[in-house]
Design a protein around this nucleic acid. Structure first.
Length: 651
DNA sequence: CTAGGGTTAG
């Protein structure tokens, strides 16, 4: 008897000897059998509680905790808060923290990390997180390493949500926002950049002459001011009509992450990784790289977390050389088997148009998890390798990895592009059985698939069933109408979307412009184009220009189309000119056709289409000599027509 | 005795 008590006391003195939850329960049972002394019970119960918390046994923790007489001892509080947090019971965790404060117990260094994790995962409540930060300072734990790391993580997760309000970011960048996005990258030169340079100079003058009547340009002034304030290292170079922004422009005022970081007396790899990750998440890539450099200047070596955090930066920069350097570093330091790094590498190589390397990395990774499979599927589909995407999807199923919502929204565009309605429907069935059909990503991709397969009713049915519509799901519906020739429906849906307060983005405008293009609605298209560029300040992409110029051309407004293309702020592609060229053929405008063909050949001297189309124009107006001459030139140059092919699905 | 990471839709 006495022996047992001694054993129990020994174990309680060194609880780390308990290796399994069943041992913990045995110990608990022995204590319950012998309880009599309330104080002794309280002491041992707190220890058992922390052991239960280590094994993540929430129910046992709760029943044990509730048996305490109020107020429970300090050790019990931190165990229960930790256990609730790691079980995902965030509200309860916070509630216990509040009760603990009310009971006058001082939280210590073990409480805050789990509590802050709760704040971060609980999403959204930055104010509460800040309150906890205040509490940290008040109890004098702001110099604690783990607490500091947890604080930074909390700010990384919660502060961007706030920053978004500040900038009122619609999902698309506004024109001046292009500057924010062209970090370390040359922006294509063109009239638009020159325009902006001029405007900025005008505004600059206005600002310095403190002319108060600049209201008509207020928006530009505002953006200009914020831009100027945001550029920290004076690295906007407008010298030759090209604007190159080197370095982060979003790194305006210091954010809380940086503030916490700077006040930390001791930092470890986790601290650095958290700051780097925060920068990456906020799109502050240059800051992230600088921080990485600073980290190397100290005695800290990047670990596998660091590498998988920094790789997306090179994916965004499309800098495969730097990405490979990281890959090499990972191999040299034995991190190349890490699944997280593997997934980042797959994505990075694919973004840098080196899909072959993505395949290799994936093939060589010893353990493949859900994310690496899904990354592989996504990059295949995004790069147009639909068959490979489908193959990987099937292989994933064969490997026994359960598809998630992510998998379906990644694979569905493959069905859409290949117009494989049968497979799409099969997957739709799977999606419904798994209950993924209320996922907004999955639903949007399904709508797109049905629309591309001509099944507009089902697309509408899915749209109506969704409880919440975002820009993408609205856009998918507009595109569904557009692709199937319902131009007016597409337009009215666009207007409905605006009325519901959902901001259209560049994709939505592409959809509505496509609708106009298919419906021959020239004036409407121009109106929408202006609304996009002037009203919403969304910079048009090549597809928007293509839709409008194609429409103008087909309506016979050839000179307007030509003017329109010449005024583009990005370099026209040969494809854009070719659509105009074929419009010239339809409307038998030889002079313009010659001019346009010259433009195409300047971009692609071997362009078969330019030769063929121009010679067809000559044929159509009966200028046989010129047509023959052109065909001869073609043959001399060795330009050959490509063979065309198409396919259908046989059911 | 507590903290950090990767992939989606038009």
């Amino acid at each position: 008897m006495k022996n047992t008590v001694e054993v129990i006391a020994n174990i309680l003195g060194n609880p780390s000897v308990i290796k399994t939850s069943s041992e913990a329960k045995q110990l608990h049972a022995q204590i319950v059998k012998r309880q009599g002394n309330a104080i002794l019970f309280a002491k041992s119960a707190a220890i058992i509680l922390s052991v239960y918390a280590n094994f993540n046994l929430l129910r046992d923790c709760l029943s044990l905790f509730n048996a305490f007489r109020y107020p429970a001892p300090g050790k019990a509080w931190k165990s229960i808060i930790r256990c609730c947090a790691s079980n995902g019971n965030f509200e309860e965790s916070v509630a216990f923290f509040k009760k603990m404060r009310a009971a006058g117990k001082l939280p210590d260094r073990n409480v805050f990390p789990s509590l802050l994790k709760t704040c971060a995962a609980h999403l959204g409540d930055l104010r509460f997180g800040e309150a906890v930060h205040c509490c940290v300072i008040r109890v004098g734990l702001d110099s604690d390493l783990f607490t500091g790391n947890a604080l930074m993580n909390m700010y990384v997760k919660l502060e961007p949500l706030n920053a978004r309000d500040v900038f009122d970011c619609c999902s698309e960048p506004k024109w001046p926002f292009r500057f924010y996005n062209c970090l370390n990258r040359t922006v294509s030169s063109g009239s638009y950049m020159q325009d902006y340079k001029d405007k900025f100079e005008v505004v600059d003058e206005k600002l310095h002459s403190s002319d108060e009547n600049a209201s008509d340009e207020q928006m530009i002034v505002d953006d200009y001011v914020s831009l100027k304030n945001n550029v920290r290292r004076s690295n906007v170079d407008c010298s030759d009509g090209e604007i190159v922004v080197v370095g982060s422009v979003l790194g305006k005022r210091k954010n809380s992450v940086e503030k916490v970081f700077e006040t930390m007396p001791v930092r470890d790899v986790v601290s650095w990784n958290t700051v780097i990750g925060g920068h990456v998440q906020n799109g502050m890539y240059e800051e992230a790289l600088l921080t990485l450099k600073d980290m190397g200047l100290g005695n800290l070596r990047p670990d596998s977390y660091t590498l998988s955090t920094i790789l997306p930066v090179f994916a965004k920069y499309v800098d495969v050389r730097k990405g490979k350097e990281i890959h090499g570093y990972a191999v040299r330091h034995g991190h190349d088997k890490d699944v997280f790094i593997g997934s980042s590498l797959i994505d990075m190589y694919a973004n840098c148009m080196q899909l072959e390397y993505s395949y290799k990395v994936f093939g060589l990774s010893p353990q493949k998890d859900r994310v690496s499979w899904n990354s592989m599927i996504a990059v295949c589909v995004q790069n147009g390798c639909f068959d490979d995407g489908l193959r990987y999807f099937r292989e994933m199923l064969k490997a026994g990895v359960e598809p998630v919502a992510f998998s379906f929204s990644s694979i569905m565009p493959a069905c859409a592009h290949l117009a494989m309605l049968c497979l799409g429907k099969e997957l739709h069935g799977y999606i419904i059985r798994r209950g993924f059909d209320d996922n907004i990503f999955v639903a949007s991709s399904l709508m797109d698939m049905y629309a591309k397969c001509g099944n507009i009713e089902t697309a509408k049915w899915i749209f109506d069933k969704m409880e919440f519509h975002d820009t993408v799901s609205w856009t998918a519906m507009i595109m569904a109408y557009a692709l199937n020739g319902h131009a007016r429906d597409a337009i009215s849906f666009f207007e409905k979307m605006e009325m519901e307060g959902v901001k259209p983005n560049s994709g939505s405008f592409l959809a509505v412009l496509t609708a106009c293009s298919h419906g021959g609605l020239v004036d409407e298209a121009q109106m929408f184009f202006d609304r996009m560029t002037l009203g919403y300040a969304i910079p048009p992409g090549i597809e928007h220009y293509a839709a409008v110029s194609d429409l103008l051309g087909r309506a016979g407004r050839l000179d307007e189309a030509y003017e329109f293309i010449c005024k583009m702020h990005i370099k026209p592609t040969d494809a854009i000119w070719l659509t105009l060229l074929s419009a010239c053929r339809v409307h038998k405008n030889v002079e313009l056709a010659e001019k346009v063909a010259k433009e195409v050949l300047a971009i692609d001297p071997e362009s078969v289409n330019a030769y063929v189309l121009l010679s067809n124009v000559y044929v159509d107006v009966g200028r046989w000599k010129e047509a023959t001459k052109l065909r001869t030139t073609m043959r001399k140059k060795g330009v050959k027509k490509n063979e065309a092919c198409s396919w259908i699905e046989v059911v």
